[in-house]
Design a protein around this nucleic acid. Structure first.
Length: 155
DNA sequence: GCCAACGTTGGC
DNA sequence: GCCAACGTTGGC
């Protein structure tokens, strides 16, 4: 199958592109997703090696801050079992975990492609994350959209 | 801090 | 299974 691509939102205060770059192996378990559609993307549709647009959200300068890739098969999000975590889910058990995640590994940090620049680019007008009211933290990206991002970053 | 969008919850 | 209330997201 041809490669697939994703856009994944991260709040820089939680995990910025620099946070990721400083982690061992430059990889991070994508914890804290508590939306079924986003979970299903990670559990069912992602494949190891898929490209990821690493997007900074809920911050002063939202936008794409780097390129990454899916780096593991799905496995249970450990934070769902931790009563001290804000992501604790009492309905989950180790036998029947509700939330599965993937590891994400850095490819490279990029100059910030700001949300404003993304909205201004005709080649990105179809991006799901740009649709009004979109709140999904993980969205699919088409090969054409991925190529368009790379083109914009190369300028 | 505002507010629109929209997913989730829970009573019925 | 409907749907109103509520909570969260996230740009501005």
């Amino acid at each position: 199958m041809s490669p697939q691509y994703w856009l994944m939102k991260s709040e820089p205060e939680e995990c910025s592109i620099d946070t990721l770059a400083a982690l061992p192996g430059q990889r991070v378990p994508w914890t804290g997703v508590r939306n079924y559609q986003a979970r299903n993307f990670m559990r069912d549709l992602m494949r190891v090696g898929d490209g990821v647009l690493f997007y900074h959200s809920s911050c002063a300068e939202p936008g794409i801050a780097g390129l990454a890739e899916v780096a593991s098969e799905p496995y249970p999000d450990p934070t769902q079992f931790d009563p001290g975590s804000p992501y604790f889910d009492a309905r989950s058990t180790t036998e029947r975990p509700r939330w599965l995640l993937r590891d994400v590994a850095l490819r490279r940090k990029t100059p910030l492609l700001s949300l404003r620049a993304m909205r201004a680019a005709p080649t990105l007008s179809s991006l799901q994350v740009l649709r009004p009211g979109n709140r999904l933290s993980i969205t699919p990206v088409s090969p054409a959209e991925w190529d368009a991002v790379l083109t914009l970053l190369d300028r």
